[in-house]
Write a protein that binds this DNA or RNA. Structure first.
Lengths: 220, 220
DNA sequence: TGCAACGTCGTGAAATTTTCCCGGCGCTGC
DNA sequence: GCAGCGCCGGGAAAATTTCACGACGTTGCA
């Protein structure tokens, strides 16, 4: 931030979407996209080599997801500024992302101005949340319903996400670089915290809460 | 197609994503984006007023989805050329889209060149499918996902339904007047027959095949 | 008619997973 | 400093899943 231009790292697994970010951001003076990543691991690597002023990060990506990538980057650089930009209009995801260390959460349905506004806010040190998510959060606060995102720690939420994505315990263990035993323990703990007795109930609860969307069922 | 430039209608509910399409397509001579829509209904209206040479359409959108929009447009103009461009890397969606009248199906993970290639192919009258979906289709053709209703015996199917309804093994055993052991055996056999390794996969497969509908999720 | 194939039900035992309890580590807040 | 919590995993008991096997009735067909 000491230079005239703020450097930005884009993270999204859809190249045409990255093209969209680029196009919008390039119209803004003082912003420069210096790197792009297509998954969380690459994002982490590039962050370390480029140390950009800002990361714009999608959440649903192959391998380690966006939440985990946020966590890792923030672990490496506690001052990292990360703006999550995603299709999920779900308060739970927003809560998780912010808890993991993101400084902003904007949905892809937002107009370009909202993204630009959020980018500037985060660069200025503020926390940026798009209006629709603000509203979602307000609603969930009113209804007082405790969601998965509420009771689960970021790590637990990440494991839940991977479980729902049809990964085996071993695959998740490898993805997260922990022992399968830890994943099994977390799996059990998650079910306990959410008050479900079986994986079937777990999936249904996730569907109800929008953690797993039914259109997401494809990727086998 | 009689003019020098081919006119294009973009349909996607994420404005920044539309910006991405635009950016990629503008680099191609002979293509011109003449309109944008953010949902299926708007796409239908705009198609009728603009009658573009090509529609590039997302699938997951608010209101009437992409498939339905394809159907309506094709109903109004049987010669309409529609290229589906979506995040869903799922053979089922592709089949649905093509059956509805789309002339192409490209995933958003594809590089820009693939999109451009597909646009030109569809404009030239060909059917364009991105390689990853080709592969998915081939796989489903080779070791096609067994349809539950097909390979399961009536008893097995009944147990599956009860399992999906969040019953415990003991409850099902009592309902069916058999030993819990039998239910457990059937549960295992069902997973084996359907080729899934976990209950999570089982639920997802059931959702894909419509055995469990999400309206069923309401009860708490 | 006989008998092969299959669906249904169940047992027992092995293999695996789930669950619970434990300790250690590092960070945060008071 | 110390309590609390998130995170990581070992150990062992408990539960489940899976496999092998057999019994019984029905169906279909040669």
């Amino acid at each position: 931030m000491s230079t005239a231009e703020a450097t930005i790292l884009l993270v999204d697994d859809h190249s045409v979407v990255r093209e969209g970010y680029r196009s919008v951001l390039q119209k803004q003076p003082g912003l420069r996209v210096v790197a792009e990543a297509a998954d969380g691991a690459e994002a982490y690597r590039l962050y370390k080599s480029e140390t950009p002023d800002l990361v714009i990060m999608d959440l649903s990506m192959p391998g380690i997801g966006g939440i985990e990538a946020v966590r890792r980057i923030r672990q490496w650089d506690k001052a990292a500024r990360i703006l999550v930009f995603t299709m999920h209009e779900n308060a739970g995801f927003a809560v998780q992302a912010i808890r993991a260390g993101a400084r902003g959460y904007v949905t892809k349905t937002s107009p370009p101005e909202t993204l630009v506004r959020a980018v500037k806010d985060v660069l200025a040190g503020k926390i940026a949340i798009s209006p629709d998510i603000d509203h979602e959060l307000a609603l969930s606060r009113i209804s007082g319903e405790s969601s998965a995102a509420d009771v689960l720690t970021p790590r637990e939420f990440e494991v839940l996400r991977l479980l729902l994505a049809e990964n085996t315990t071993e695959e998740i263990a490898e993805t997260l670089h922990v022992s399968p035993k830890t994943v099994a323990n977390l799996h059990s703990l998650i079910k306990d915290k959410l008050g479900v007795g079986s994986d079937i109930e777990l999936v249904r609860l996730a569907l109800r809460q929008g953690i797993l969307t039914e259109v997401d069922l494809g990727e086998a």
